[in-house]
Design a protein around this nucleic acid. Structure first.
Lengths: 227, 227
DNA sequence: GAGTAGTGTTACAGTTTTGTTAAATGTTTA
DNA sequence: TAAACATTTAACAAAACTGTAACACTACTC
């Protein structure tokens, strides 16, 4: 259920505060301090929701909004604007340029949280058919199924999560620590060798015929999904 | 674009003002001055959007909201609350009870209009299928009947709701929490194991012959309607 | 009022999944 | 090449998860 939220906010303290609180609520958080960077990161990461500060040093919020709403790949990501107090004009413009909601600074975090939840609740059914494909491997996040060469393979929960995470950025090498944090959870305390064992199990599970292993070991660094 | 907007507002002058302005914008407008009437009219007319005053003589806005959001037929109609100034608490409650947005009185009409447009733009045309068919399973939402291989099977209310929800997106895996929220209701407090028991009962009920179970268990995740 | 259907909870058994350990295997370095 | 280091794998016991029967309770029906 953990949704991914992208925060565009140039004021460091606010950004930190938002990140801290959102992560405490179990959201995955990415952020950027300027518009240009935000645009490319958003297209790369495809978050589930965007918190967008209206006043930015380079691009204005309205420009970002318009830009995002004209890009097929990201136009359905809901945007909540954060505006300075009393900028009536801006709110109207913002909503007209495609933002889904706005909040006036200063705002209470519970209120923001309620808005975010309301938004995600409404939007989530739209996010159907999340399928990720890499080579002959397909992960269907909605049905929670994995296919290799169009044949379904059965994975245990951990194996599924592990693969699901690895496939989001194929070829990228993740350390055991990163995998533990992302797949197992930060708090949990598990030997780092455990990752190895699960990697082995995952390898066996997705190894239809005696073809390539599909998971690369990078000595003294970690693993990546790759042939 | 003529959408149909329903206004629930007990203060006559405001209602008149809203109606006048909305109609000038080309919307079709219906309205009601009290909660009870509103509920039945909304279910009858199925508007595209609801403007809901938070302070009403009989039912409170929050009650209306909850009521509407638990009624399958109207729960997807977006609601914009109109709250008195500074009722922070109310906003949060409102959004949590299912409202999509709110506006604080006094508000400017352009702003309201922008909100309405943003909301309508976002909301997908709700497909209210009267009959949903998946494989040899048919759910008739109007008659509240379920057929398997054209033979009627009798389900209890909960089982019906459960199946009705599962069939809206076959193959999609729902967690026990999601099922509790959607089928039982958010506020209600029920053990999550209860879902298991009802799944078992539903399985037995729709299992005409000794064929496939039609409901898949996804260990550590939830259930999906699937063979 | 007794009888019935529908619900929610609990307990138990059976199964799957998981983390750990230790030995085996592989790779780099001096 | 040997020593040092890193990864793979099998085995096993513990933990987690699920299915279902049994039971209690409620709300209705006749």
């Amino acid at each position: 259920m953990s949704a991914h939220i992208f925060v565009v906010e140039d004021e460091k303290p606010i950004q930190t505060l938002l990140r801290y609180n959102l992560e405490k609520e179990g959201f995955k958080v990415s952020s950027s301090e300027n518009g240009e960077e935000a645009l490319s990161l958003i297209k790369e990461k495809k978050p589930d929701l965007i918190l967008l500060d209206w006043m930015l040093p380079d691009l204005s919020g309205i420009k970002i909004c318009q830009y995002l709403k004209h890009d097929k790949k990201v136009k359905d990501i809901p945007i909540i604007m954060l505006t300075a107090k009393g900028e009536e004009e801006d709110k109207v413009k913002g909503l007209e340029s495609g933002a889904e909601d706005y909040l006036t600074k200063p705002f209470s975090f519970p209120e923001l949280l309620a808005r975010i939840k309301a938004m995600l609740r409404r939007v989530k059914p739209t996010v159907v058919n999340e399928e990720i494909i890499y080579l002959d491997l397909k992960v269907d996040r909605v049905a929670m199924k994995v296919y290799r060469q169009n044949k379904e393979v059965s994975l245990g929960p951990k194996e599924f999560k592990l693969l699901d995470f690895l496939i989001t950025q194929p070829k990228r090498v993740y350390s055991r620590e990163q995998l533990l944090e992302q797949v197992w959870g930060e708090d949990i305390n598990v030997e780092s060798r455990t990752v190895d064992v699960h990697i082995t199990r995952l390898r066996q599970a997705i190894n239809i015929d005696g073809s390539k292993p599909l998971i690369r070991t990078v000595r003294s660094a970690g693993y990546s999904l790759e042939n």
